[in-house]
Design a protein around this nucleic acid. Structure first.
Length: 143
DNA sequence: GCCAACGTTGGC
DNA sequence: GCCAACGTTGGC
């Protein structure tokens, strides 16, 4: 089991929309980047991920769970791209902003800091726990 | 709104 | 297979 971070522009797909999909979840579609696709292929059912709002807000706002492993992206006609399904699990009581992350020495190696353009990225256990703690979840959910 | 960084494309 | 040009992303 592993932890991840998935980015979305709120204008394209927001945390509110994700939550409306409920426990059944929704396709994380539209990813057209090989590294991000490979990360999704590595995901297992039950893995957890931060839901990050890029652009305006720049903060982790919630936690999602992988409910279906990689399958062809229904928005892609070429069959080349894949996606997973994710369902909202919990809000982060306090959104953890990019500035918060940069200001935290233990988080300086996060992919988010060093490769901000990668839309689906791995998160270590230590980073998971630290970001959850900053977000107001002293007992982070476990994948 | 600007610009730097990155990934992809296509000509050679 | 290399590299220049281009498009896109995302922080500021």
């Amino acid at each position: 089991m592993a932890y991840w971070l998935m980015k979305s522009e709120p204008g394209a797909w927001s945390w509110d929309q994700q939550k409306k999909e409920g426990k059944a979840g929704a396709e994380w579609d539209g990813v057209r980047n090989y590294q991000a696709r490979n990360n999704m292929r590595a995901m297992k059912k039950g893995d957890l991920a931060f839901f990050y709002h890029s652009v305006g807000e720049k903060a982790c706002v919630g936690i999602v769970k992988v409910v279906a492993e990689a399958h062809p992206d229904s928005t892609d006609g070429s069959g080349q791209w894949e996606c997973v399904d994710v369902a909202a699990v919990a809000d982060l009581p306090k959104p953890v902003t990019l500035a918060d992350i940069k200001a935290t020495p233990q988080l300086k190696d996060m992919v988010l800091v060093n490769n901000s353009r990668l839309s689906v990225q791995p998160v270590t256990v230590a980073e998971w726990q630290k970001v959850c703690a900053l977000g107001g979840l002293p007992h982070p959910p476990k994948a």
